[in-house]
Nucleic acid binder design. Structure first.
Lengths: 333, 333
DNA sequence: TTGTATGCGTTATCAG
DNA sequence: CTGATAACGCATACAA
């Protein structure tokens, strides 16, 4: 431990190596511009002392933090995990560090977190979900930091955008179920903005096709298996005639599937179930669950590229990218 | 957007408000020491311009980043979520920001991440799981940054520690199953260090009690439901005589329970299943799963307190805290 | 209560 | 290739 001692800096390394601080800086950042002897001396001292340069100082001087911040609604559940993993990997390859913050679906908290993030002057900010508060949008724009909103398509992005249309998903699922002969369908859904977009599109498309979409059962956050069970129970209590249910996540779908089984409601014969996310649980369930697949890895990679391109001063290839989605058919429908 | 424009600083705010930069700094940090008029003028400009102070500069000057870094093996799954949530909350209350990094159970990556973290000079570092590499331990100690290793008890902590004994869990589960009459038991387990500790203790205790612990089925990371199904299948293929299985996570246990059902193996009559973590899936499953409960919230809170106390220059109350565990009995055993 | 000078640790720039 | 100097944006110490 080094507690209490005054911090060890490049000056100290320089002193011990018998060179100037500038040479230490170069040895660390551009070793090819330092003579082999000097380099060896510096490296030896760095190794011995475990010296690590202070990123606050270098960030201040360079006006680059080599840091990208991601703001997630939640870490719970595997929903965003694939994307975060890809984001992290892509940023690391390019020499950036990822800093993750979770807002917990809470507006006040999101506001505070956003301030904290902007304070650190990251080279980019990735928002999972659109920034809706006008306050937040202003703060982001004023900061001059490149922003990518991910996981959602909106008409008025703060800056860049990579996502997919939740409305299109709602409609497509209705089409899919309609094509399979279902005429009375329902939803078990979370209550966040993106889920609501799907709920509305679901109802509208059903009406357009002339089939019945019963009122959805809303589940509280987080979307657990238990919430899925309770959601299906509520839906069936109200509308026992439904023959198919679209759940807003695979975890809810798994819960619904278990609840159906407990009620001796054969899946898919008596009740078809479709989830969303294509998490591993969907494929592993019994029966395997039909689901809406989102390519989280692709979103993460593209978001990283967008942010890095901007941080390097280039304009991004495209400021808005729709990566679409697909329905993965399995035994539950 | 403000791209390209030179960054807006306190000096600019000061100029616009017609005061000195120092007054702006005080208005932001110690408003009670600024006259109401000045305060109003500064706040007005800050509001209008959306000014946010640069944390790299203030951190450099104060030699405090007001940042705590947490290093997790993974974000996947709900295992650490309760702890992270509590950690985040406790730190926020005390004016610190939490920065999360995931090492992905990969040593090289962990090394790089650790460097990146130390560079930013956080006021504390929380490690989930013990730091095993000697390199990493040295780097941590040399940094002088307070460190808390969490989720595990080890004989030689780098600094502070809050966790529970994985060996004690392995032994307790054997005792529990033994008391219920089981004489041939097995495990479906992940292969990480902590899981292995439980595996070994499980085998030892079984031997001490004179009952049979068959060789465990190891599952690949991440611990999904599918891995649990496959794990149980493998175990039963090798050792069909087992009457109870301890799974190293609730997700694995859920998978095992589904696999058992598919094989018409009644739970718990023919096969008892016990999970670990007490995630919501455990209670929501059918049948509800017996599990080992860890108080992640408590770990998170204590870790935050330890780190903050040290950052404030105090010695922590206790440098090592064992928070224990409990077995939650449900219908699967 | 407000302002001025100074330095935090690093690197861009320019001189040798 | 190496070193001296200054500056990044902010807050501590001190002066007015």
């Amino acid at each position: 431990m080094n507690t209490g001692a005054k911090p060890f800096t490049m000056h100290d390394v320089a002193r011990l190596a018998g060179v100037s601080p500038m040479t230490v800086s170069r040895a660390l950042n551009t070793p090819e511009r330092v003579s082999p002897e000097m380099l060896a001396r510096v490296r030896e001292v760095v190794r011995r002392t475990n010296f690590v340069p202070n990123a606050m100082a270098s960030g201040l001087r360079r006006a680059r933090a080599r840091l990208v911040a991601a703001l997630l609604p939640t870490l719970v559940g595997p929903v965003f995990q694939e994307m975060v993993e890809a984001l992290d990997r892509a940023l690391h390859e390019r020499g950036y560090q990822l800093m993750i913050g979770q807002s917990g679906y809470d507006a006040t908290r999101e506001e505070a977190l956003l301030r904290g993030i902007i304070q650190r002057r990251p080279d980019g900010i990735i928002l999972v979900g659109a920034m809706r508060s006008e306050e937040g949008r202003r703060a982001l724009r004023a900061s001059g930091i490149p922003v990518v909103e991910a996981w959602e398509l909106t008409a008025t992005p703060v800056d860049m955008l990579v996502g997919f249309s939740h409305a299109a998903i709602g409609a497509s699922v209705v089409d899919y179920l309609h094509a399979r002969g279902h005429r009375c369908i329902g939803m078990v859904s979370a209550g966040d903005q993106r889920a609501l977009t799907r709920v509305n599109a679901f109802a509208e498309r059903a009406q357009a096709l002339g089939i019945t979409a019963v009122a959805p059962a809303f589940t509280p956050a987080p979307s657990t298996m238990g919430a899925g069970r309770a959601g299906l129970a509520e839906l069936l209590a109200r509308s026992p005639q439904v023959t198919a249910v679209f759940c807003s996540s695979d975890m809810l779908a798994l819960g619904a599937s278990i609840e159906a089984r407990e009620r001796r409601l054969a899946v898919p014969k008596k009740l078809a179930i479709i989830g969303m996310g294509d998490q591993s649980v969907a494929a592993d369930a019994a029966p395997p669950l039909t689901t809406v697949r989102i390519d989280g890895t692709r979103i993460g990679r593209i978001a990283a590229e967008m942010v890095v391109a901007r941080a390097d001063g280039q304009a991004p290839g495209q400021a808005v990218v729709d990566i679409g989605f697909s329905i993965v058919e399995r035994a539950s429908t």
